[in-house]
């Protein structure tokens, strides 16, 4: 993943929240955009890793008991 992600501006946040069906009152947009941008920035630390064929770490267990 090499394409940088756009900053989560208040305008971007409104669109993302609408698509997630998440109510976003106007008086929350600025704070929510700032937090979302910080979290997205942290998650983008994953961009550099070469995962190859590594499967995800999951805990699904098909046993019934």
């Amino acid at each position: 993943m090499t394409t940088p992600r756009p900053t989560v501006t208040p305008e971007v946040l409104r669109t993302l929240a609408e698509h997630a069906r998440l109510p976003m009152p106007n008086d929350r947009v600025e704070a929510a955009a700032a937090t979302a941008d910080l979290v997205q920035g942290a998650v983008d630390g994953l961009d550099s890793v070469d995962l190859g064929d590594t499967p995800p770490a999951t805990t699904f267990d098909a046993r019934w008991s």
Binding site: A17, A20, A31, A32, A34, V39, P56, A57, T58
Partner: peptide, 30 residues
């Protein structure tokens, strides 16, 4: 509380593919 609400809102906006990428990277860390 405002700090918790902001994190909960932000978490809704992460793509599922990024989440799974994290699960795969966790296996590499292990």
């Amino acid at each position: 509380e405002p700090d918790v609400r902001a994190l909960l809102e932000a978490g809704e906006l992460i793509y599922a593919t990024d989440y799974i990428r994290a699960l795969r990277a966790r296996e590499l860390i292990k």
